Amino acid sequence: MLHAIIDIGSNTIRMAVYQISGRSFTLLMKRKHTVGLAAYLDRGHLTRAGIEQTVGILGGFMDFIGTFAIPHVHAFATAALRTAENRRAVTEEIARRTGVQVRIISGSEEAAYGFIGATAHLTHPDGVMIDIGGGSTEIIAYEHRAMRGRWSLPLGSLALSKAHVAGLLPTAAECAAIRAAVEGILAGVPDVRALRAKYMVGMGGVLSSASRMHRLLHPEGAVRHFPAAALGGMIAVYGSGRPLTEDETAVLLRAAPDRLHTIIPGLIIAHVLAETFGAADIQYSDSGVREGYIWKEIVGGETRDGGTPAKEPP
């Protein structure tokens, strides 16, 4: 059966179509709109402009779904709508105007879905997994491939960019302000500050872009793996405020074309977390929240301790 999964995030709104048969599923196609929904929050409310953007995109998705008679549609929203005080009115308007029934998932659910989705790609049995979004960062500590703790922190690449960056790329002073903001949030979460892990698994657009950036800068390196220390070098180059060289610009445009204004704030979040955990190695995982949602809510596979799939997704 064909299933469309719609993910309304703080930075992007995505639709992916999967063919699901029994306990296996295959990604057929995906579409993405970089909206920056978190930037449309004003005094805790999603603005009319943000609502119209969302309704327009979801209406287009539903036209596509109708054209191909895709029978099953699942839609969930994360931090931007989760934190909006008018979220109920927004989801009701979306349902009325587009027919899309949006489920707002909690930060804990988001972290759990991400862990389930990425389990098949865990190289090491112990570590910390992070998913840096536009409005929040999900953190999971795992041991022996089982979840041992999960946290959702109000640290988002788009939110930090909006709060601290005047231009497209931050200056050194703005990077320092972002770092101070991240450290300030972590100061209030002693359980997270106490985590220690040599290996860190990254999901989402920020770590995907970081992985591509490192590969472009160091083509001899491993695919999807890079040293955590490399984050500091990337931030130093692209968060210095100085004019970039042609080669530096080419790398940035190839690695992060859809998130030029949020990539450096996101890298700073990752860098502070890696330093806090004592992480030496970062691995990027392609699978994440959508795949975890399929396993937990559609396939209905039995799970081991902490939500790890009993069978690995294909």
Rank of each mutant, 00 (worst) to 15 (best):
S10E: 10
G306E: 13
V201P: 06
A177C: 01
V289N: 09
V100S: 07
F64E: 14
E291Q: 06
R48A: 15
A69E: 11
I5P: 02
V251N: 08
P314H: 04
G50M: 02
E297F: 04
G300F: 04
I294W: 03
T123S: 15
L168N: 02
E291C: 02
R48N: 08
F115W: 03
F115R: 09
H45A: 12
G60I: 08
H3Q: 05
T308I: 14
G239N: 12
N86F: 01
R88Q: 13
G307Y: 01
G156T: 11
D42E: 15
I5F: 02
I139D: 04
E138V: 05
V35C: 11
R290F: 01
A163W: 03
G278A: 00
T26F: 02
A95W: 10
Q53W: 05
V100E: 11
A229H: 05
T98A: 10
S287K: 13
Y199G: 07
R150E: 08
I269A: 06
Y142W: 08
F64W: 04
L158A: 12
I20Y: 03
G205T: 10
H124K: 11
Y199C: 08
A95S: 15
A49Y: 01
I282H: 10
H74C: 02
G232S: 10
G107N: 06
L58K: 06
A176I: 02
L253P: 01
T276Y: 00
A180M: 06
A16F: 03
A255S: 14
G233C: 03
L216A: 05
E93V: 06
A181E: 13
T26E: 14
A177E: 11
S152L: 02
T171F: 05
M200G: 08
L160V: 05
M15R: 13
H144T: 08
A69F: 00
I264L: 13
I8A: 00
S106F: 03
A38C: 05
G167H: 13
G188I: 00
S152T: 03
M62V: 08
A177I: 01
G59A: 14
G50F: 02
I282W: 00
Y199R: 15
S211H: 01
T262W: 03
G36P: 04
V55P: 08
A280S: 15
Q283T: 13
A279Q: 12
A112H: 15
Y238V: 03
G135A: 09
E93A: 07
G44H: 11
E302R: 12
D191Q: 15
Y40S: 05
L28M: 15
I130R: 07
G278N: 11
M1W: 00
A222P: 06
G233P: 09
K296Q: 12
P227A: 12
N11R: 09
I20Q: 11
V73M: 04
V128P: 05
A270E: 09
G114Q: 14
L58Y: 04
V128K: 07
G117P: 11
I185M: 04
R193D: 01
G60P: 07
E174Q: 15
H261S: 14
M1V: 07
R23I: 11
I264P: 13
A163G: 05
D305W: 04
G300L: 09
S285D: 06
G167A: 15
V182G: 07
S211W: 01
H45G: 01
F25I: 03
V251Y: 12
V182D: 08
A274S: 10
G266Q: 10
F61N: 11
D258A: 10
I65S: 10
A112F: 05
A16W: 06
G134E: 06
Y142P: 04
S208W: 00
I70F: 00
